[in-house]
Design a protein around this nucleic acid. Structure first.
Length: 460
RNA sequence: GUGGAUGUAGCUCAGCUGGUUAGAGCGCAGGUUUGUGGUACCUGAGGUCGUGGGUUCAAAUCCCAUCAUCCACCCCA
């Protein structure tokens, strides 16, 4: 049997062209994050299994566990009822948030009072792959540790909105909700604790399956009629189409009518109100969309939660929220935090599908032709002079090839200008300068060619 | 993790119920054009039909397994 050479399921090779595109996207995002004062952090790809367990809820079954080694493994295998957790002691990181929480707990004196960090790197999930969904994929996270203020939410969402804008995504919405608001609604609707999760999952599906679909989910999940009565209005308010006449303030008032007497609900609404005010005039302002039907799965969120959506595509491009209790799971100090994770893989799939990448990169500004071996030194000298002025210059390597091939080569490589040096030009002391896009060609005096080309390249 | 579809040249695909040297378009290379590319015409190179096994006189075509991709569920980035 020949060995398969495809990457393992859900893993990918990135060839140079794609690798460069990815890098450009990461750099764009990084530049925006740094402009907000976020600092870089790197953490290992593997964590102790115990570090990750108990942080993600249901999702935990998707953690890639790493087997114990040597004597430890032998001992584990000899136990009576071995299961996968006995055999594993490490795991590939599942996201970048839990590692951040661990790092903050580990180095309490290393960070400023408010620690703003970004991290871009791969994470691993043992999911069944699909389009835009992989087992190894990159996340771009920004988080602020140490403050409970809603300005943190405003800044984190703004950094995201700005990064997406920079990448060319228009019409995105940052759906925002609040964990405690959902809890308050559950309380008002008398949904028992054991059923709350079912209710949230059903509500969160509305974008995909519609209001009627959610209704059916409620039945299937054995949720009461009165729960439906109380919770179904959330669906309507979460639909940007169906609520043109209800602005954020009016929505918050209506929500307050329903959960105003729940202390947690009241506090949640106050958070959202502040957030809406703070983001006005910030990049997140136009994009922020209060959506009381937004749920989100990861169990560590405690406050506002976010998800990026758009009418232009299904699913989300990223999500985030406040997780004030997570760091406390690693240390006896309670440290508030809030962050956002951008799903670059989906962004890259969309950008590819929509031809959102800038036109093909230009590997050089100008190609210098090579007439024959006798003129090689003249061409090389021209190339040297042009390079000395800061231009990126390619010198055609084969003197056997006619100008037809040389032009074809410039065309293929997307080089905008060709500097032509042949006996006629040499005799007249000029260089032929051809604009590949227009096809125009003019003779320029050899002494002025550097200057003229610089101008031409600049005015592209 | 559950259910389903697909896998043929670099790319997109065609190959009916198994039958001699496996096709097209695009792309690629060479030529028409020994000082001029992107157009046109001509010519050509590329495939052990995902991989392994089985059935058969005969398999790209049927069966099994395996790997990968896609879709739905689950859930999420």
């Amino acid at each position: 049997m020949t060995e398969p050479t495809t990457p393992a399921s859900g893993m990918r090779d990135f060839l140079p062209r794609e690798s460069m595109r990815r890098r450009r996207v990461f750099e764009t995002i990084r530049d925006v994050y740094e402009s907000y004062g976020f600092e870089p952090l790197e953490t290992p790809s593997m964590e102790r299994l115990s570090t990750l367990l108990g942080k993600y809820g249901e999702e935990e079954k998707l953690i890639f566990k790493v087997m114990k080694r040597g004597a430890k493994l032998s001992r584990a295998l000899q136990q009576d009822d071995v299961d996968d957790e006995d055999l594993a002691d490490l795991a590939l990181r599942f996201d970048l948030t839990v590692p951040l929480a661990r790092v903050v707990a580990e180095y309490p004196d290393e960070f400023p009072r408010f620690f703003k960090r970004y991290q871009i790197g791969p994470v691993w999930r043992a999911d069944r792959p699909q389009k835009g969904r992989f087992r190894e994929f990159y996340q771009c996270d920004v988080d602020v540790v140490g403050s409970e203020s809603m300005t943190v939410e405003a800044e984190v969402t703004s950094a995201l909105a700005e990064a997406l804008d920079e990448l060319g995504f228009a019409n995105i919405r940052i759906h925002a909700n609040h964990r405690q608001l959902l809890d308050a609604f559950m309380a008002v609707a008398d949904v028992p604790d054991s059923k709350r999760k079912d209710a949230l999952i059903a509500i969160d599906k509305v974008e995909k399956i519609g209001v009627e679909g959610v209704r059916e989910e409620f039945d299937r999940r054995d949720l009461s009629e009165s729960a439906w009565e109380t919770l179904s209005p959330l669906l309507k308010w979460g639909d940007p189409e169906a609520r043109p006449d209800v602005d954020d303030e009016a929505l918050l008032d209506r929500l307050a009518d329903q959960v105003g007497d729940q202390p947690d609900g009241e506090a949640a609404l106050e958070d959202l109100r502040q957030l809406a005010e703070l983001t006005e005039g910030m990049p997140a302002g136009d994009a922020l969309f209060l959506d009381p039907s937004l749920a989100r799965g990861l169990s560590y969120y405690t406050g506002p939660i976010f998800e990026i959506r758009s009418d232009d595509f299904q699913g989300s491009l990223g999500g985030g929220g406040r997780y004030d209790d997570l760091i406390g799971m690693f240390t006896n100090r309670e440290i508030p935090a809030c962050g956002f994770s951008l799903g670059v893989e989906r962004i890259l799939v969309l950008m590819e599908e929509r031809n959102m990448f800038e036109e093909a990169p230009r590997p050089a500004d100008v190609l210098v032709t090579l007439w024959d071996d006798d003129l090689a030194s003249e061409s090389a000298e021209l190339a040297r002079d042009l390079r000395a002025s800061g231009l990126r210059v390619d010198l055609y390597p084969e003197s056997d090839d006619g100008f037809g091939k040389q032009f074809g080569y410039a065309d293929e490589r997307n080089i905008p200008f060709v500097a032509i040096l042949a006996p006629d030009e040499l005799e007249e002391g000029v260089v032929g300068l051809k604009n590949m896009e227009s096809g125009d060609q003019t003779d320029i005096e050899r002494s002025r060619i550097v200057e003229r080309l610089q101008q031409a390249v600049e005015s592209l």
